[in-house]
């Protein structure tokens, strides 16, 4: 109910109340089976760009090869998240001083930013909202998973995701959409996802979201104290456009530097407004049609 001022319009209450139901019903819909919401905290300040997360993810989830390309973009030959890439390590080269032990390093100003990107498992998931088959679900752990036996490859979730995470797998006539499951087969058994397990610096941390948020706030304090002025948490705020991420980040610069949207929103938030506009347009079409029949005789 983000448009309370407009809720009084005819039918508005009904329409505007519905879109939120699907995503906010969790965890009640699971009853006794609901578990604490689990997620990732990816602390990019300690990422060393080893790509162990990418490899571990591929191995565990048996994700097909995503192309052997040389991009020329720093050490990133993975490119971006996609149907066959569920973890993606970004490499950014900046002409800013490297900070070592709380001081600017000597020599020419140059630093790396490295960050392991992943599905954000949003609180308000646009992909889950728009999925016409119900293939995309929220698990008892609060994570977002595509059921591959239901997905019919309509592709609606692909442009709906504000992060461009979901993608259609075109190889082997698959035709379905795939993304990070937060290793649902592992996490439902109480195990750690493959990427977090493999990460050698604990840049990727897995755990109950509440705990991760506390840990991240403390870590941010330390990083800022060490003089990283651009450091910030990204996606930890439950009041942002997607209700906070289940997999959030500590970044050292603006989100768009990492290829992330600065202010992502779940587009379904605006659905009541869209249906109202469509209803007015449909009404105009109906009235206009009648007018064409009644008006004049030629």
């Amino acid at each position: 109910m983000r448009h309370p001022a407009r809720a009084g319009v005819a039918g508005g209450d009904l329409v505007s109340a519905q879109p939120r139901v699907a995503t906010e019903a969790w965890p009640e819909t699971y009853g006794d089976e609901a578990k604490p919401r689990m997620g990732f905290f990816t602390d990019t300040s300690v990422c060393i760009g080893c790509k162990a997360c990418e490899v571990a993810c591929k191995e565990w989830n048996q994700v097909p090869e995503d192309g052997l390309l040389f991009t020329g973009d720093s050490y990133d030959n993975t490119g971006r998240l996609g149907a066959d890439t569920w973890r993606h390590v970004a490499f950014i080269e900046q002409d800013r001083p490297l900070r070592v032990g709380g001081e600017d390093g000597d020599g020419e100003p140059f630093r790396w930013l490295m960050s392991s990107d992943v599905c954000k498992h949003c609180t308000h998931s646009a992909c889950l909202d728009v999925c016409p088959t119900g293939a995309i679900i929220r698990t008892e752990l609060g994570t977002v998973v595509v059921q591959e036996d239901i997905c019919n490859g309509c592709g609606y979730c692909v442009p709906a995701c504000p992060f461009g995470v979901l993608d259609k797998r075109e190889i082997e006539d698959d035709g379905r959409v795939w993304k990070c499951t937060l290793c649902y087969d592992r996490t439902r058994e109480g195990m750690t996802p493959a990427c977090a397990q493999a990460c050698p610096t604990e840049s990727i941390q897995y755990g109950p979201l509440d705990e991760l948020r506390e840990r991240a706030a403390a870590r941010l304090g330390k990083v800022v104290e060490d003089g990283f002025a651009g450091a910030r948490l990204y996606g930890e705020d439950p009041d942002d456009g997607v209700g906070g991420f289940g997999a959030f980040f500590l970044l050292l610069d603006e989100p768009e530097v990492y290829g992330l949207p600065p202010n992502p929103v779940d587009t379904t938030r605006d659905l009541p407004e869209m249906w109202r506009a469509a209803a007015v347009a449909a009404g105009a079409l109906a009235l206009g049609t009648v007018a064409c029949l009644l008006g004049g005789r030629r």
Binding site: V15, T133, G134, C151, N152, G153, R169, G175, M274
Partner: peptide, 25 residues
């Protein structure tokens, strides 16, 4: 246009107001 045309009917297994594609189907 579906990736899995034989699963077209999956759109009719649910009524889902949050999905304009489902409503449209």
């Amino acid at each position: 246009d579906l990736g899995r045309p034989e699963r077209f009917m999956n759109m009719l297994r649910v009524v889902k107001p949050t999905s304009p594609m489902n409503v449209g189907t």
